[in-house]
Nucleic acid binder design. Structure first.
Length: 500
RNA sequence: GCACCGGUGGCGAAGUGGCUAACGCGCUGGUCUGCAAAACCAGUAUUCGUGGGUUCGAUCCCCACCCGGUGCUCCA
């Protein structure tokens, strides 16, 4: 089934394909590295991750480029406040960003392009625009894009510029622009600010030009898809189109993919609302990275997601159930528990269908909500069969294959959660943020927490007490461990424990 | 103000002009257990914001209204 995706440019769901018949070339607007990434940022990147995984699942290669904006007003402001060069300042948050992406199991793009490493490309682009009289320089040395010279302006965000008042909102240092809507390509150097001395003057790039320059460099003048958060549609992406197409006279990106903003507890996430969360905040509160990923992907990308702590708890349970199920089926194969008899045709068909339904839902404009359903259908059908001793080895293996396919997209079945929480704890320690750590997290993962050896010893003591039918002692140990975040599970194969 | 999106069970959420309105979480009951936990099973919306209309038939189409959210400026 062909992968179909909504295209902001056309306003329609369209088949997605690689124009060169080989790899699908796409660009995603990445982070501005001035602070730690928040869950809103990651909702976008997570859905872009699903997009790239879905493309690959359809047997199409990907060439994914993501930029890192490592120079802009906020970085300059924050770096200067911290008394650091902007490079040192932004490097810290760039590393944090990629660590977070990894924690959320996002695949790494084929190319990561930093703005500061592409100044010559940007300068060249501005020169080409200047040659066509589309870029012009103002008295202070800044360069602007003359929107009047690009009639298609507004095509992506469906804006009719004629209806917008010209002359509104004139910035004090932008008074020289021909039109208030003209946007900056290059900002002339200000005293004390980082700048580059180039053929078009001493200054630094405007925000939009980096993406045009880098996309054209890595993906060519015309490529398949361009992605980002919904807020970037205007003006950022509109400006990218204008700059690039005015220069190349070719269509920039064919397909545009925009991810909607999320709400937190029903409101727009903002620092003033007190509902602003970075990934690290959540990990320190004891929420698992896998549950965060699963929640952020639970609602299709074009739909507003309401991020709540109740939802996070729900997804934690859901991920646990899937993992337990996978372990049950896999260990049964290992132990030779599932007979190698003829498979029940009905069950085999159900297993096959769940895989098909999964890919069909995904092909349908990446309907991640719909794609989850068949996995739980599979879980129920196979568990029931296993309970009734009707699960065969062949069906068990087929089940694992479907789960693996599911996980090529959702990527939540492998459990790295404890390790990721420990990493976050280590970070909090090094940054002096221990006050943000929830007591339970400290209890379960902190330096004073029980070691595996301690736990095993207590578990052994409890098992002995149980054997002696000293249930009071056994229950006391169980409660003691529970208070420290250790959950015991008695099974026929012995006692398992896990950290909550 | 203009524009856009949404309002489906306790919560989240999919979906369709007409079969029993997915799925997850929760809850209730059951199996298991020394008791629990975990796991598993079962049950859990005669109904899809309100009022009209179109239609043989609407949750799904049209109109109006109410509510929530978002964009029009930096933002993923």
């Amino acid at each position: 089934m062909a992968l179909e995706l909504f295209n902001t440019l056309s306003g329609q769901v369209e088949p997605l394909f690689a124009a060169d018949g080989n790899a699908l070339r796409f660009y995603c607007c990445g982070p501005t590295v001035y602070d730690y990434g928040h869950i809103g940022n990651f909702r976008t990147f997570l859905h872009v991750d699903v997009l790239r995984r879905a493309i690959k699942l359809h047997g199409i290669g990907v060439h994914h480029v993501m930029n890192v904006t490592d120079v802009d007003d906020k970085i300059i402001r924050n770096a200067s406040a911290a008394g650091k060069p902007i490079g040192e300042y932004s490097a810290k948050f760039e590393k944090a960003f990629f660590d977070d992406m990894k924690a959320l199991s996002c695949e790494t793009p084929e190319d990561i392009a930093r703005a500061t490493e592409h100044i010559p490309e940007m300068v060249e682009l501005i020169q080409r625009l200047a040659a066509e009289d589309i870029a012009y320089q103002t008295e202070d040395g800044s360069w602007y894009f003359r929107i009047k010279r690009f009639p298609a302006y507004g095509q992506l965000s469906k804006k009719d510029l004629d209806g917008i008042e010209d002359g509104a909102r004139i910035d004090s240092d932008e008074y020289e622009k021909d039109s208030a809507r003209d946007f900056a390509l290059w900002k002339s150097a200000k005293p004390g600010e980082t700048s580059w001395d180039t053929a078009i003057g001493n200054g630094r790039p405007g925000w939009h030009i980096e993406c045009s320059a880098m996309a054209l460099k890595y993906l060519g003048e015309s490529f398949d898809l361009h992605a980002g958060g919904e807020d970037l549609m205007f003006p950022h992406h509109e400006n990218e189109i204008a700059q690039s197409e005015a220069c190349t006279h070719k269509q920039f990106a064919r397909h545009w993919f925009h991810v909607r903003f999320l709400l937190v507890e029903g409101r727009k996430m903002s620092k003033s609302e007190g509902n602003f969360y970075t990934l690290r905040d959540l990990l320190l509160k004891g929420y698992r990275a896998s549950a965060i990923r699963f929640l952020l992907l639970s609602v299709p990308y074009r739909q507003q997601l309401n991020f709540t702590f109740e939802g996070l708890a729900a997804e934690t349970s859901a991920v646990d159930r899937l993992r337990t199920f996978q372990a049950r089926v896999a260990s049964g194969i290992k132990d030779g528990k599932w007979p190698e008899t003829a498979a029940d045709p009905e069950l085999s068909a159900t297993i096959r269908k769940s895989g098909e339904d999964f890919t069909a839902a995904l092909s349908n404009d990446l309907n991640t909500a719909e794609a989850r359903a068949p996995i739980f259908d599979l879980l129920r059908a196979v568990n029931t069969a296993a309970d009734q001793n009707k699960l065969t080895r062949a069906d068990a293996e087929a089940t694992l294959a479907v789960l693996a396919q599911f996980d090529t997209i959702f990527s939540v079945l492998e459990d790295h959660d404890a390790e990721l929480t420990r990493n976050a704890l280590a970070w909090a320690e090094s940054e002096g943020r221990m006050a943000d750590v929830a007591p339970e997290v400290l209890e379960a993962f902190g330096s004073s927490s029980l070691s595996d050896v301690d736990i095993d010893a207590l578990v052994a003591e409890r098992t002995l007490a149980k054997k002696q039918r000293n249930f009071a002692r056994a229950d006391a140990i169980r409660n003691e461990l529970l208070e420290k975040g250790i959950l015991l599970e008695d099974s026929k194969d012995g006692v398992r424990w896990k950290r909550k």
